[in-house]
């Protein structure tokens, strides 16, 4: 086996044609959205259809592409096979609740079941995720890229399938015990409480979640790209995230380090001091994550906004950046 460090690019993601779910996450302010947009652009070159989803309440996608995106998938201007959407988990829960009430306004069980369900910790976010999965499943996308919220949310987000599966398992247990009683009470009260329908929905949702849970733990289908900058807090957060992902059995083997000062010829005292600090942590990153692809992305002079800027920026993810040596001319 070769002892050379792995190539510092995301080319491995483009080559892995079996990938279906890609998560991009990290500390706030390190360039997650720019990285996920760039990755989506590169993926659209090798895949038939790509979906980019933002689950971050901050919703930076619209700003990055200069186009307004909503909760429905919309094509990114300039691309035929790249779509984007922004989802607010909180709103999804409200919509789901309202839908349930509208479908069966006379059902006395809906309120009770909702209250019961929401007592399970983490269930609200898990249901939001279920909503997202429902939408995605109906869209036949070849590859889905998630631009996730800052780390804390992301970790809870990724653990949803497991949490939800356990929760629904408990509810399933309740079904076999209380189902018959609920039916009798319903008939006595003269209300057609469609108990089978309710638990049936729960069970089918559970089956879906279980399937996705398996997919998330399959390194052929799912991977997580960590984005950070070469500073202590971001590095610490990345380490914490990688350990959490490992415990969730989610594959992760790519790290993108943004905002690097790579100009070897600079004479600016502040840049030199900052670069020295960055190099220290960069060395630590390479030592600690020797089995990761570590992509080094330099700090660019201009803001990375708009399709064209993102396209040129995305090239740095698949080809190592080489600083021009003729800077003085």
């Amino acid at each position: 086996m070769s002892f050379d460090p792995l190539p510092g690019t995301l080319e491995n993601l483009l080559e892995q044609t079996s990938l279906k779910w890609i998560f991009v996450g990290g500390k706030g302010g390190v360039g997650k959205t720019t990285t996920s947009c760039s990755l989506a652009i590169q993926m659209s070159k090798v895949r038939s259809s790509v979906l980019l989803i933002s689950t971050d309440p901050a919703h930076n996608l619209s700003d990055a592409f200069g186009t307004k995106f909503g909760k429905d998938a919309r094509k990114v201007p300039g691309f035929d096979n790249l779509s984007a959407m922004e989802i607010d988990p909180n709103l999804s829960i409200q919509e789901m609740t309202e839908q349930a009430d509208q479908q069966n306004p006379n059902n006395p069980l809906s309120g009770m079941m909702q209250d019961l369900a929401f007592t399970i910790p983490g269930i609200d976010e898990a249901l939001a995720f279920a909503e997202i999965l429902k939408q995605i499943k109906s869209m036949e996308f070849d590859c889905v890229i998630f631009d996730t919220a800052p780390t804390g949310h992301t970790l809870r987000f990724l653990n949803f399938p497991t949490v939800l599966e356990k929760a629904l398992g408990k509810l399933g247990g309740l079904s076999s015990r209380f189902g018959p009683m609920i039916n009798q009470m319903g008939s006595i009260m003269g209300v057609n409480a469609n108990e089978q329908d309710l638990f049936g929905k729960m069970e089918s949702m559970r089956a879906n979640i279980s399937e996705v849970n398996k997919q998330f733990k399959n390194p052929d289908l799912t991977t997580f790209v960590c984005v950070c900058i070469s500073e202590f807090l971001s590095l610490y957060e990345t380490e914490r995230m990688i350990q959490e992902l490992t415990s969730y059995e989610i594959d992760t083997h790519n790290i993108v380090v943004n905002q690097l000062l790579l100009d070897p010829n600079t004479t600016c005292p502040q840049c030199m001091a900052r670069r020295k600090m960055q190099q220290k942590y960069l060395a630590q990153i390479e030592e600690l994550y020797e089995d990761f692809h570590v992509v080094k992305v330099p700090q660019v002079p201009a803001e990375v906004r708009g399709t064209e800027a993102l396209k040129s920026f995305s090239e740095m993810l698949v080809k190592p950046y080489v600083y021009p040596t003729s800077g003085k001319e």
Binding site: E239, Q243, L288
Partner: peptide, 17 residues
């Protein structure tokens, strides 16, 4: 020092956990 030797610190932290 987690700031000066993060790689070593992180490995020790993993082992400790």
């Amino acid at each position: 020092s987690s700031q000066d030797q993060f790689a070593k610190w992180a490995r020790l932290n993993r082992k400790y956990e």
